[in-house]
């Protein structure tokens, strides 16, 4: 028999603030991403060859031809479907199955638990032992897919230095570079990446290169939460900047050409 304490929690600090901010942040970003996905416009700045990461790679026939760096192997999409529909499942899958985001939304959205030592409202709990949550074990596959998309984003960022008037550097280039830098840091700091690179080994001494990589990734992994948020927010800011330039609301600040 446990000690009879009727209160759900005796915590006196603002334990509810963190889950509240998480829900608000993820909700806001989800709404923004949905609006931009279905907008199907202002994703390409022809003059400077800026392509928003939300529409990269743009593979269907309805894409602006110059924005399709890898051709248009897919037909025009029916109804309300837009080009990002092919990449969003992978990007979303990578974030949803990420060990940091799992902690964030299990706490904030599912309240399992809402905070440490605060009772959860659910009567039963099976964790990640049954469908659909057992699918969280597929995180490594989303990591592979996200790595490919990251390489494509890096290509886009480099290609953006060559606009209609040839080589040039603008604020958009800097934003695209910072964006891929943050995405690369988030992807490399992933727990699955850490495991694949060396964490699975029993004998580091027999694999010095993989041990070195594991050490570097472990350092990045310690900042996984910060990288998860900063990369997510910066993707949206990058997209917003490109949308504003593409729509003519603002002009790109040019440093060279």
């Amino acid at each position: 028999m446990r000690a009879q304490i009727s209160e759900r929690t005796l915590r006196t600090d603002r334990w509810w603030l963190s889950p509240l901010l998480t829900v608000a942040g993820l909700g806001l970003i989800s709404v923004y991403a949905a609006i931009r996905t279905f907008m199907n416009d202002y994703y390409w700045v022809g003059e400077y060859h800026y392509l928003t990461p939300m529409y990269s790679p743009c593979l269907s026939a309805e894409c602006v031809p110059a924005a399709s760096h890898f051709g248009q192997p897919l037909p025009e999409l029916p109804g309300f479907l837009t080009p990002p529909i092919f990449i969003i499942p992978f990007l979303l899958g990578f974030r949803i199955t990420c060990y940091y985001y799992r902690k964030a939304y299990y706490r904030a959205a599912w309240m399992s638990p809402p905070a440490c030592a605060v009772a959860e409202p659910h009567k039963t709990y099976t964790g990640e032992t049954k469908a659909p949550l057992i699918a969280q074990n597929l995180h490594r596959y989303f990591f592979y897919a996200a790595s490919i998309l990251l390489l494509i984003n890096i290509y886009d960022a480099i290609a953006a230095f060559s606009g209609e008037k040839g080589f040039g550097i603008g604020l958009g280039n800097i934003i695209l570079l910072v964006n891929v830098g943050l995405l690369a840091a988030y992807t490399l700091s992933c727990h699955s990446c850490r495991h694949i690179m060396g964490g699975k080994l029993k004998h580091f001494s027999k694999h010095p290169v993989r041990y070195w990589m594991w050490q570097r990734i472990s350092t990045l992994n310690g900042k996984h939460m910060q990288l998860a948020w900063s990369s997510l927010i910066f993707v949206c800011l990058t997209d917003l900047y490109i949308a504003l330039v593409a729509s003519g609301v603002i002009g790109d600040l040019r440093f060279v050409n």
Partner: peptide, 15 residues
Amino acid sequence: HGLGLCNITKCCSEV
């Protein structure tokens, strides 16, 4: 040992 029940909400590390 029930590892699948853990949903990695990190309270163990926090305390």
